[in-house]
């Protein structure tokens, strides 16, 4: 357990930057696949923060949380991509701005 030489704070700040970039991706990209990828980026940023905090607290709980986030992400991706495939068949488009059947 040598000294890492880098403050935990920097890791967490980096994670915040990545998280925000993921958020921006979700909000701005119109391609549904890209939107999912941005969500993955957000989850990864959260993972980075968790690992950094786990380092700080020298505890295993953070690592386990990361493990579960990864697994859940895998499950989400499977369902999400299936949905995209389904909607592509119907609409021949995966532009999420084309999803506006409901108006009020």
């Amino acid at each position: 357990m040598g000294s890492s030489g880098v403050s935990i704070e920097l890791y967490v700040l980096l994670s915040a930057v990545l998280f925000i970039m993921g958020t921006i991706g979700v909000l701005l990209r119109r391609n549904a696949i890209l939107v999912f990828m941005s969500v993955e980026l957000m989850l990864n940023a959260a993972n980075l923060a968790l690992v950094a905090f786990a380092r700080q607290w020298a505890g295993g709980d953070g690592h386990l949380m990361v493990f579960f986030v990864m697994t859940v992400a895998a499950a989400e991706v499977a369902v999400g991509l299936a949905l995209i495939v389904a909607i592509f068949r119907t609409k021949k488009s995966i532009d999420i701005d084309n999803l506006h059947l409901f108006k009020e």
């Binding site: 909000l27 119109r30 999803l99 506006h100």
Partner: peptide
């Protein structure tokens, strides 16, 4: 504008 855009909801 009055349509169900996902981006709006995310915003």
């Amino acid at each position: 504008i009055q349509t169900g855009y996902v981006h709006m909801y995310a915003l």
